[in-house]
C-alpha cells in the first residue's frame, strides 16, 4: 500500500518559556492510500491542532509531515496555496459554503481556482453530484438547503478535485443524527468507490465507527489505535466506546 500521509515526531508548542503548552507532543503515524481514518480525542486533546498542521493552516514546531512525497512543513506562500488546492480537500463543521453561490457554483469554484476549463467542469460536477445524491439541489443556494445537503455539497467541493487527502473537521458536528448517518455512509461509499483517502477529526464515537481505523489522542500524544478489520460497525462502535471511557472523556460528549 502506498503511504499518503506520513507524520514523524511532530511537535507543536504554544506560549513561551514560562508557560508552555504542548498541543502536539511527538506524534508519529502514517495513513495509506484509500484509508478512512478517524482521529478522536476530548476537547483540548490536540486533535484540531493536528488537523491544522496537516492542512498547512498552522506550522509545526518540529518534526516532519509528508503528503504524497511532498514535505509540507517547508512550503511557503504561493506554492503552499497551490499545494493546498491541488492535493488537499477540506470539509468543515460549518460547511463554509459561499452563500452567494448556488451549490453547483460552489462545487465548480474548487475546479475554477485550479484553472480548469469551463467545459470539463460540468461533467465532473454531474457525476460527483449523483454520487452524493445532491443533483436536485445543485441550483439551490445554501440558505435553501438542509444541513445534510449543505455538508454533502461541501464534500463534493472537497472531493471533486480528486485530492490525495481529504481532511474533515467534525463534519457531522452541525448535523442531526439522520443527516450524520447519511453523510457518513456517503463517506464510506466514496472511500470505497473512488479510493478517496479521508482523515476525519471527531469527538463523536458514532461518527468514528464508520472509519476503517480510529486514532485516539490525549494530551497531544497518540494514546491508542483501533482497526475495524472485518468487524461489524456495531462491534467496532462498542470497542471505540471502551477506549473512550478509558480516555476518561465525558460520556455525554460521546453519544
Amino acid at each position: 500500500m502506498e503511504t499518503i500521509l506520513k507524520i514523524a515526531h511532530v511537535q507543536k508548542y504554544y506560549g513561551n518559556k514560562t508557560n508552555l503548552t504542548k498541543a502536539l507532543d511527538d506524534i508519529s503515524f502514517a495513513v495509506d492510500k484509500g484509508e478512512f481514518v478517524a482521529i478522536m480525542g476530548a476537547s483540548g486533546s490536540g486533535k484540531t491542532t493536528l488537523l491544522n498542521v496537516i492542512s498547512t493552516i498552522d506550522r509545526v514546531t518540529s518534526g516532519h509531515i509528508q503528503i504524497g512525497h511532498q514535505e509540507i512543513t517547508t512550503l511557503k506562500g504561493a506554492r503552499l496555496n497551490q499545494f493546498r488546492r491541488e492535493k488537499l480537500g477540506f470539509i468543515f463543521q460549518d460547511f463554509n459554503l459561499l452563500d452567494t453561490l448556488t451549490a453547483y457554483e460552489n462545487i465548480a469554484l474548487a475546479l475554477q481556482i485550479q484553472g480548469m476549463k469551463a467545459r470539463v467542469i460540468d461533467a465532473k460536477i454531474q457525476q460527483m453530484a449523483s454520487q452524493l445524491d445532491i443533483t436536485e439541489v445543485l441550483n439551490k443556494y445554501p440558505y435553501e438547503m438542509s444541513g445534510g445537503q449543505k455538508q454533502r455539497v461541501a464534500s463534493a467541493r472537497a472531493l471533486i478535485t480528486q485530492p490525495e487527502l481529504v481532511l474533515a473537521d467534525e463534519p457531522t458536528g452541525a448535523l442531526d443524527s439522520r443527516s450524520s448517518k447519511y453523510l457518513l455512509e456517503c463517506f464510506q461509499h466514496l472511500n470505497k468507490q473512488l479510493q478517496a483517502t479521508i482523515l476525519m477529526v471527531t469527538h463523536d464515537a458514532f461518527s468514528a465507527s464508520y472509519a476503517s481505523r480510529v486514532l485516539f489522542i490525549k494530551d497531544g500524544k497518540l494514546f491508542n489505535e483501533l482497526r475495524r478489520g472485518e468487524m461489524s460497525r456495531k462491534t467496532f462502535f462498542n470497542q471505540i466506546i471502551d477506549v473512550v471511557s478509558l480516555l476518561g472523556g465525558d460520556a455525554n460528549d460521546l453519544i
Partner: peptide, 8 residues
C-alpha cells in the same frame, strides 16, 4: 472560505 479552499 476562499482562502480555506486554497485560492491564491
Amino acid at each position: 472560505i476562499l482562502r480555506k479552499i486554497g485560492t491564491d
